[in-house]
Amino acid sequence: MMRRFLGKAGIYSAAAAVLVFSVFPFVWMALTSFKPNEEIFTAVPRLLPTRWTLAQYRYVIDRGGFGRYFLNSAVIALFTTLCGIFVASLAAYALARFRFPGRTVFLLLILVVQMFPLVVLIIPLFIIMRRLGLLDSYLGLVIAYTTFTLPFGVWMLKGYFESIPSSLEEAAMIDGCSRMAAFARVIVPVSAPGIAASSIYAFIGAWNEFMFAMTFINKESMRTLPLGLQAFFGQFTVEWGPVMAASVIFTLPVLVFFLLVQKRLTTGLVKGAVKG
């Protein structure tokens, strides 16, 4: 009894510590976003606004453009996630189930590009995008983000597929499925947690990215949210209140996305295992 209680207490106190550490900057940001300008900086810091206001949010929305940035970011992030999962799971399946020349080389090759600092890649990348006519387009950013979030997806899913006994698909193939159908019907559902984790990674990667978007996008109508956020960092001043409000707006959709996929993170195997 006592031991169980101690175990519970341990879990909750650890959870509380993690909670405080990860939530604190966001809470600080959110609280600040409800303060009027003159309360944002005070000689003695104040946690809560004395006068709650939505003025910062109104300012952000009045500036206009945010709806469009939001749409752009959402489209790009969703397509990056879909493309990323599609491409990565095909590759991971090949790597998990087949032995072929160049297998190890491929696994290392996709890691190589991660090892270079972006500064030296950015000019050649810009030139490629320009030649392909992909500046100022969704497609350009989707391709770039998919490529740069690929390694994790491939490695993660490869590990996942390997942990699933091949007897599972073989059984399906005996039942008359083709290999691809067996993969799609048997392997993919069982790997839901891995796919969910990879998709969160791809989604946030695309949602958050600044450097590529800054370099490849010139049109106001094609800007993404991280670029839009820059509107409040001026040459001579920083508009603190709007930065905070815009950041809160920026963060929320990802949480919604997470809530949508988080069930998959934990229930995939249980179902699969029962089926298997």
């Binding site: 300012y59 009045d62 500036r63 489209v75 397509f79 006519g133 992909l134 100022d136 387009s137 969704y138 497609l139 350009g140 989707v142 010139n218 049109k219 094609m222 820059q230 509107a231 409040f232 960092f233 001026g234 040459q235 001579f236 001043t237 920083v238 508009e239």
Partner: peptide
């Protein structure tokens, strides 16, 4: 997804003023 390339236009780049 790739929108058509822009027609001839005048590109004007101004430093973000941080001032609406």
């Amino acid at each position: 997804l790739g929108t058509a390339m822009a027609k001839t236009s005048l590109e004007v780049w101004i430093m973000q003023p941080g001032n609406q």
